[in-house]
Simulated assay, not measured.
Amino acid sequence: MNIKAIVDCKTILGEGPLWDTREQRLYWIDSYGAKIFRSDEDGGGVEVWDVPQKIGSLALREQGGAILSLADGFYFFDFATGKATLMHAVAHKASTVRINDGKVDQRGRFVSGSIEITEKGADAELYSVGKDHTVRTIDDNIVVSNGPCWSPDGRTFYFADSRSLAIWAYDYDLETGNVSNKRKFCEFGPEDGLPDGATVDADGYVWSAGVYKSKIHRFAPDGTKALTIDMPIVCVTSIMFGGKNLDRLYVTSMKEAPVPGIVETGPLAGSLFVIDGLGVKGLPEYRYGG
C-alpha cells in the first residue's frame, strides 16, 4: 500500500471526491472555499471553478454539467460558463443549516443531506432530488449529514449522522427512492474519529473517513471493522475509488477544522491524496438523470 499527496490544493475543507468513468476525470470540492476542482487520475491538469456559496457536494448530470448542493438549495452548474443556476431553494428549519454531502442512486436520483453548522441542533434533513427536479425529505432530525452511499445492488442505503458516531443502514426502494427500516450499521469509538465521507467497494464493504483522528476505516457488510488505514493528516474528510481500473482510493482533507480544539498542521493539510495497492476495486458512480 502506498499513500501519496498528488495535488497541493490546500483546501480549507476538501470534500466529495468523484471519479467519472466516462470522462476519466476526478472531481472534488473545497466546501468552505466554494470551489470545484477537476484533474486526471494522477492529479495533473487541474482545473478550478468558483461557486457562489459554500458547497456540500456535486454530481454530474446525464445531459452535461452538474447538480450542486449549495448552502441554500440545489443548483445546476455549467462547466463551460462557470454559471450556477438555482433549481430548488430549500426552506431550512434554522438559519444555521446548509446542504452538505450527496450522491446519485442507481435510478438517477440525487440524495443529499444538510447539516446544522454548530453541530448541536438536530435541524438537518435528508433530501431526495428526483429526475423531474422535485425535492422531498426522506429523513430528518439529523445534526451532520455525511457519507451517503449504497450497497452494490442499490437496495441498502448507508448514511452517517457524524455526531451520532455511527453509520446507519436503511432498506432502499429503488423504484420509489423511499427509505425504511433504519438501523445502526456500525459505531465509531474514541480513536476512530467521526464518520465523514464514505463509499462502497465492489465487494460490498463500506469505507468511511474517520475525520479528526487520521483514519480511514473499511467495514464488512455485517458492520464489523475489517481494516483501518492511518493517514499522514489529522483531518481526512472523504474517499472515493477511481482511476481507469477503479482500484485507486482518492482522499480529500482540510487545512482548517471547523470545530474548536482541532488544529491541522503541516504542509500536507488540505491536499488531495491517492492510496494505491489496496487490492480492492470500487463501483462506478451514477449521473443525475434530471
Rank of each mutant, 00 (worst) to 15 (best):
A94D: 10
K281W: 13
D153G: 10
V236E: 01
Y205G: 12
P148V: 11
E62H: 07
I29D: 01
E119Q: 13
G147S: 12
L194G: 06
G243V: 12
A34F: 01
A269W: 01
M87N: 15
D105P: 00
V206D: 04
V129M: 14
D50R: 15
A257T: 05
S128M: 06
G242L: 08
W168D: 15
P221H: 02
L272Y: 00
W28P: 02
M240S: 14
A59S: 05
R163T: 14
V211E: 09
A94Y: 06
R155E: 15
I167E: 05
L58H: 03
I99H: 11
S39L: 12
Q106G: 15
V236M: 07
W19L: 14
M231K: 06
K215P: 07
P232E: 10
F37C: 07
S128R: 10
S95H: 12
Y212V: 14
V263K: 11
W49C: 08
N181C: 08
T96W: 10
R38Y: 01
K244M: 13
F157S: 04
F74H: 05
K120V: 11
Y205M: 15
L70P: 03
I36S: 00
K83W: 03
I3V: 09
R38D: 07
S253F: 02
N100C: 03
G64E: 01
G108Q: 05
R136S: 11
A80D: 03
D8Q: 14
F273A: 09
R248A: 08
K182A: 10
